[in-house]
């Protein structure tokens, strides 16, 4: 820690179960409230509208879960990471549970931009006959404007299809898993759920994804 007056705690948490359906803003609000319930000595911005100094990692779409989501919290004094984690866990609901906390350098890049490469795991309820066909482009509508994204710009490597072990994630209807890595660009990103919705099996049928989960975030 270069600046002892600066305690920047990076917390890892999961977004799972029904809470996958929360939006990024709803998650942000819920985490802020958990921090307050935990009684941590969080820092407050100075200005016209004082608010907690907290920053969130790259947003997940509504419906997509995560096992290694991040937020950075500025504290006004040192609290042992394990104690801070225990307090946060006691103040959190199971499906939005923190799993790790560590201090990071105050110069470290923000969690929202530090890890542009995300690995996703989609659990499929039907085995794609004849493999997965990935489209070359995907058309999305943003702010009423159509935009065509070249999948190759965002997709890193191949989609890996594997048969699911019995009772995958406690759900017997899951028969296969699809693992893929997407990179977000300063100009935009391709949502994992949108990519999947545009993929087909060999016969041209859409894939049936039971859940989509971000399982890794890398620099």
């Amino acid at each position: 820690m270069t600046d002892p007056a600066n305690f920047r705690l990076r917390v890892t948490f999961c977004k799972q179960g029904r809470l996958c359906m929360l939006s990024h803003l709803e998650i942000a609000r819920a985490l802020e409230r958990a921090v307050r319930r935990a009684g941590l000595p969080y820092a407050i911005s100075q200005g016209f509208s004082p608010h907690m100094k907290i920053a969130f990692g790259a947003a997940l779409p509504v419906g997509v879960g995560g096992t290694c989501e991040l937020f950075d919290l500025q504290l006004t004094r040192y609290v042992a990471p394990q104690k801070a984690l225990a307090a946060l866990q006691a103040a959190s609901v199971a499906d939005l549970m923190p799993s790790a906390a560590r201090y990071i350098e105050h110069t470290a890049p923000a969690a929202s931009v530090a890890f542009p490469k995300s690995t996703y795991l989609a659990r499929l309820s039907a085995l794609p006959e004849g493999g997965v066909v990935v489209p070359e482009t995907v058309t999305v509508v943003r702010k009423k404007k159509e935009k065509t994204l070249a999948v190759g710009e965002y997709l890193l490597g191949e989609l890996e299809l594997a048969l699911a072990a019995d009772g995958d994630a406690g759900d017997a209807s899951v028969v296969a898993q699809l693992r893929f890595k997407l990179e977000s660009k300063p100009t935009g990103s391709l949502r994992p759920d949108v990519l999947l919705a545009n993929c087909t099996d060999g016969a041209g049928n859409t894939l049936q994804a039971a859940t989509i989960t971000r399982v890794a975030q890398e620099a």
Binding site: R37, A38, G39, L40, Y42, A43, I44, Q46, K83
Partner: peptide, 13 residues
């Protein structure tokens, strides 16, 4: 009781 003994929530930095 003050939860977890971290004292009063936050403070201006």
């Amino acid at each position: 009781p003050e939860p977890h003994g971290f004292g009063e929530g936050g403070g201006p930095q």
